[in-house]
Design a binder for these strands. Structure first.
Length: 289
DNA sequence: TAGAAATGTTTAG
DNA sequence: TAAACCTTTCTAT
């Protein structure tokens, strides 16, 4: 379930679990066997995300060059993480990483204090990604050059995205999905952002004033940061929540996947239409043209 | 149990 | 514009 918040959360967690340590890597499925062999035994220097792309920078134990792992989950890709001994690999397991608990063992955990616990073993399994590959620094630059500002990265300039928006006759709903306009935004944040700013999805980019764009950016920064913290997308304002307590996924949003149901604000039926191959949802009354 | 749909991107036509 | 990639989850039968 990957929009940008998912990847930034994964990067954060993987940095915490594996960063600074040696990893063991394997590809039980075999499709990434060569790449896994090159990472195996290397030290993870840094895990980080740009938009929906995840990178691991490794230093090899032999000190010869480094490796950069690039992962894009696509629509189906998923990481599963756990502590202790990893389960027997089943199905199409592209990449398994475990920390090297023995090699990471602190020197203080020696025989003299043999009741001191070993560092816990942790593992993470990757299935179904669109991309799982090793890249050179130059290849990474090519990927990053295709990305617009990422609301989850400090120093991102929203006006770089606005430059493309304000020159375009393309519907704003299509522009918001363009990773050159905004890196990390996907179908859920797109629909919800348009609703929160009462913007008709088929309004052209040129019709979006700069001030509105900056408001939308600020909103995205807040929403997506909350998404990193919670691991889910919640866009509904407290006043519009259907009830108190933990919200189901459908209750956490205004319009996404709610076609035919009443708008939470005005009661009008939520509409849906396919736009550039993706399902779009909006309230025809709150988001009038 | 089968089938459809899904928070995405690339490539082919 | 459509298909391909590839896995999980939810719904319908």
């Amino acid at each position: 379930m990957p929009e940008g918040h998912t990847l930034h959360r994964l990067a954060r967690d993987q940095q915490r679990l594996f960063g600074g340590g040696t990893v063991r890597a394997s590809s039980p499925q075999g499709r990434f066997a060569d790449g896994a062999a090159r990472i195996d035994g290397a030290t993870l220097i840094k895990a980080e995300a740009y938009g929906k792309h995840l990178f691991h920078r490794y230093d090899r134990a032999d000190g010869i060059g480094g490796e950069i792992l690039h992962v894009h989950l696509g629509l189906y890709g998923k990481f599963t993480t756990g502590a202790g001994e990893p389960p027997e690999p089943r199905g199409a397991l592209r990449l398994r990483l475990t920390n090297d608990a023995e090699m990471n063992d602190s020197p203080t955990n020696d025989a003299a204090t043999n009741d001191a616990p070993m560092k816990d073993r942790v593992w993470t399994d990757l299935r179904g990604p669109t991309a799982c590959e090793l890249m050179s620094p130059a290849e990474v630059e090519v990927v990053l050059a295709r990305l617009g500002p990422d609301p989850l990265r400090r120093g991102s300039d929203p006006l770089l995205g606005f430059q493309r928006v304000t020159r375009s006759r393309t519907p704003i709903a299509a522009l918001l999905m363009d990773q050159q306009v905004l890196a990390g935004v996907g179908n859920v944040y797109r629909a919800e952002l348009l609703f929160r700013h009462r913007l008709h999805p088929f309004a052209t980019g040129r019709g979006v004033p700069q001030e509105l764009w900056l408001d939308m950016w600020a909103d995205l920064v807040e929403l997506m940061r909350a998404g990193v913290r919670s691991g889910r997308i919640v866009t509904i304002r407290p006043d519009d929540r259907p009830r108190r307590g933990r919200l189901t996924r459908a209750e956490s949003v205004y319009v996404y996947r709610r076609a035919g149901e009443p708008c939470r604000v005005c009661g009008t039926e939520i509409r849906t239409e396919v736009l550039v191959g993706r399902n779009l949802f909006w309230c025809p009354s709150c988001q009038a043209p």
